[in-house]
Design a protein around this nucleic acid. Structure first.
Ligand code: ZN
Ligand code: ZN
Ligand code: ZN
Ligand code: ZN
Lengths: 153, 153
DNA sequence: ACGATTTTGACAATCGTTCTCAGCGGGTCG
DNA sequence: CGACCCGCTGAGAACGATTGTCAAAATCGT
């Protein structure tokens, strides 16, 4: 998790749900396809942050070819589900990485990409406090630290 | 300032560049053109973060037409010079705002864009400490808080 | 197996941003 | 002022990441 999830706009499903009732909304339940499995596995094979295109490329090299569009779609879903972290490189591209499921932030090496997950309860509290102090609600935040790792000094 | 400047590219010549010559290399010295003045003035006319295209549009409405490419170029320069802050909206677009020159972060309304500049000495210290703790050097960071402002609740 | 539903993928379409390059204009020097 | 140098501008092409399209393929519940 890179940022606290703001109660994102949950658009209700628009298909006539037949089966038994479910207050919130019954989830379609994703299907375990070869492609989705391949992407998930690929995500577990590297430690740094990579772009959708790089991951697509990685899959191709592995022989487990998956359409680019599918890679984009799958990564987005995984990110929305909180199964992987997504953040934006300095040039605005979305980059992904498999991370622990707890809320945390990143210390990324600007040179080799080596990433360390860090936690800062104090910071979390601070952001909440600041937001509340100004009357802002549904707060979320992004915090990333960039630097040069020991090996790249 | 949205993030600490990573000792990237330029560094020695922050605002120390004076009239007298310097060893490194003489600066071409930007030219005060109508377009640049227009963009700077436009930036001073609003409080929230806006995209290059929106600023270009704003200029057009003001009658002070400026080419889109020039708007992009000028905004980048102002941002590089630290005269305005640039950050990325959640969808990756670059958005700009005239800010105070001291290092600070933002509490941005996800709905109307209303922004509050906030400071957090503790956070600054925390990021430095974390980085040092892991042996990372030349540290910089980005931290933005998003929420819904009182008026948009 | 069968129909309903979801997913896929090749390709087109967006869209923000950058590149090109001929023409313009500010600054300078004589 | 006039010639020049060179940064600056802008219209449009080019780019590159991401999304949309939609017919064909895969899955699921029965
Ligand atoms: Zn993470
Ligand atoms: Zn956090
Ligand atoms: Zn600012
Ligand atoms: Zn800071």
């Amino acid at each position: 998790m890179t940022s606290t999830e703001p109660p994102t706009t949950d658009r209700a499903d628009q298909q006539t749900a037949h089966q038994t009732d479910q207050e919130p909304a019954a989830k379609p339940a994703l299907r375990p396809t070869r492609q989705r499995r391949a992407v998930s596995e690929a995500m577990a094979s590297f430690e740094d942050f990579r772009s959708a295109q790089e991951i697509h490329e990685l899959l191709r090299n592995r022989g487990e070819a998956v359409g680019l569009a599918t890679v984009y779609r799958t990564l987005q879903r995984l990110a929305d589900a909180g199964e992987i972290d997504m953040l934006r490189s300095e040039d605005g591209e979305a980059i992904y990485r498999a991370c622990s499921t707890t809320h945390h932030h990143h210390l990324v090496c600007r040179s080799c990409g080596r990433t360390v997950e860090v936690e800062g309860p104090a910071v979390e509290r601070w952001t909440s406090a600041i937001a509340a102090e100004h009357g802002y609600g549904e707060v979320s935040h992004t915090l990333e630290i960039f630097g040069t790792c020991p090996a790249c000094r």
